[in-house]
Design a binder for these strands. Structure first.
Lengths: 195, 195, 195, 195
DNA sequence: AATGAATGAGCGTTCATTCAT
DNA sequence: CATGAATGAACGCTCATTCAT
């Protein structure tokens, strides 16, 4: 097992999902993006579905790393489901400001990430393992968001994640929607905070 | 054209989309749900894509009818893009209360409708006509929401629709999410209103 | 049985073959050209193949009528496989001149006829009855040509008909071929005659 | 790319076209004749149409090779659109004798080749790429015939090729036609030459 | 480990034909 | 006579997957 090749395939799947969407991302297309023989995909991952599960895990890991790239300690705390001390010191308002700007940056800079997320959701309808993994990852992310914002209302994290997803989904369909205003309003209303 | 058969096919497509999802909803499966020969689908709709467009239109019509089943005048006004006078008389608070409870009722009662909506969004990635029609319908619905709530902020209707979609999407994936709480929070935050 | 409707269908088939070619000339398309319900085609002709056979007969009759529209007696004689007396009086050279100019006129004016002829030949590969009827008609036409030109060499009529067909076939494929020159050369060589 | 399998598929297409005609030569039938899985046809050729184009090229190459199998130099000269010196030395009469006997041999021996040629022409009505390639090949062959017979009359090569095609077409329909006599007459008239 | 030939189930679609009305 | 709804076999093509090399 060459971990390098395995990673190439995962990266190929990512690129293909971004550029082609999941319907055009056949095994051969993915292998093309990965610069790898298509037979290797099954050799390394067993099936297309399992490759997608691996990609989801890879993406999930990256999200957190990107959000807290400057605070590796926070990352460690959060993945252990502990509230980072640095966050605990922030006031609610300061926290909201910090996170919402960071998320905006994140989603602006990592549009591709969002695209893939949508593709995962689409795929989950026909791939049980993808569905299961995605569910698991989203639960984890909700928990982490709860920790970050110190908000015990389960509706809060659910709404936050769902709204971000929904905005992106509608944006994909119709790039003319008021995406910035919608995001700003979400931030404002959810964090009682205005830029 | 036997309108009865045509309707049977649309209903078959609806059922199939709900129970099987769009990927398993092949022409033959849809025809099976409709209790009709598969060739008839093309006889009546020309292509799978055109059937889906017809279904979207049928659904869009039903949404408004279901939301305002007790106020046919409002329906007429809204489809003419006029603000119904009955609404104009309500105060903001009263209006928010009215609509948000109605939407909650709607989405609780018409879960299937929501499921199909998600399938449409998934299909739109590979069916240009579906994409176009869906975009058109969503723009119309946003406009109507703006009229109803008398809110000229484009972010408002965008966020409202997107959040509802997002919540449903996540709910599909994981029926254990705090859907009620998320919806309640959305209502509270977006309409500054609490039950 | 309404002979009028039957004729409308035959005419529809002719038009469709000319404008659409035999592959696009489905029963429904033909019925469209005929301005008639597609079910009637089977009602009157039993099958598509039998319709085509009827069309071949109709065309074959018309060819002779068009060639000898000014000499109805000749027509009668020829269909009885007698050599018309008017022809017997002509000298070989005069005859060749007469017929070759007439054929040139014919094929220039009745390009559509030629097109259909090609379509028949194409169809004959997959429709045994069409093949049989066409064979029969062509034998008759060869016999008639033999009578006209008083030429007992079976190769003569075979070559004449085959060359005309071949030229048209190549012309269909590539309208830039030297069709006039080829026809002129055929006339010159076959009738030892130059314009 | 297994050239062996690719060739098997081309040969299968050839056989199928000869024995079944182009309408019955479905991908699966062709694969059957080739002794190969039907999916491989698309694996190697992309589409049925592209397979047919490949077959045309293969056939076109073989024609020249068969006609000049004993003069490889001529082949080289002709494909470079030069007149072979060996031909230049022949007198007109000798040349006509040489070529017409050779063609007779060719078409007697390679009846199947002729059958396929007719199928190509039929297919060209519905396959644009086939049409284009066939047009191209025929133009090339006309040019080569012009070189061989040193005849600059465009009608000559056009008539020659068209007549041969037409004779074969009629022969397909009705094997009882006077094919030998027609060919003999064509040779005699076109080359002013008698056996 | 890596390649790509080979497989086969399944897709949307077409269309001649049948038949109830 | 006429209509058009309904049927079903067949088509070209796609693609995840298997497997010999």
């Amino acid at each position: 097992m060459s971990e390098k090749t395995k990673q190439k395939i995962i990266d190929g799947a990512r690129k293909s999902l971004i550029k082609e969407g999941h319907r055009l991302s056949t095994i051969k297309v993915i292998a093309g993006y990965a610069g790898v023989n298509h037979g290797l995909v099954h050799h390394y991952f067993g099936s297309k579905e399992d490759l997608m599960v691996a990609l989801i895990e890879s993406q999930a890991q990256q999200v957190l790393e990107l959000l807290f790239s400057d605070n590796p300690d926070w990352l460690e705390d959060l993945s252990q489901k502990r509230r980072p001390k640095g966050l605990a010191k922030m006031k609610q308002r300061e926290l909201a400001q910090f996170m919402s700007s960071r998320m905006d940056q994140f989603f602006s800079a990592y549009d591709d990430f969002a695209k893939i997320h949508i593709e995962f959701l689409a795929m989950s309808a026909e791939m049980p393992k993808v569905s299961k993994k995605l569910k698991e990852i989203l639960r984890k992310h909700r928990k982490i968001l709860g920790l970050i914002f110190n908000n015990s209302n389960p509706g809060f994290t659910t709404l936050l994640l769902a709204s971000l997803t929904g905005i992106l989904l509608h944006y994909r369909l119709d790039p003319k929607i008021a995406i910035k205003e919608a995001r700003a309003l979400l931030r404002e209303k959810l964090f009682d905070y205005q830029l």
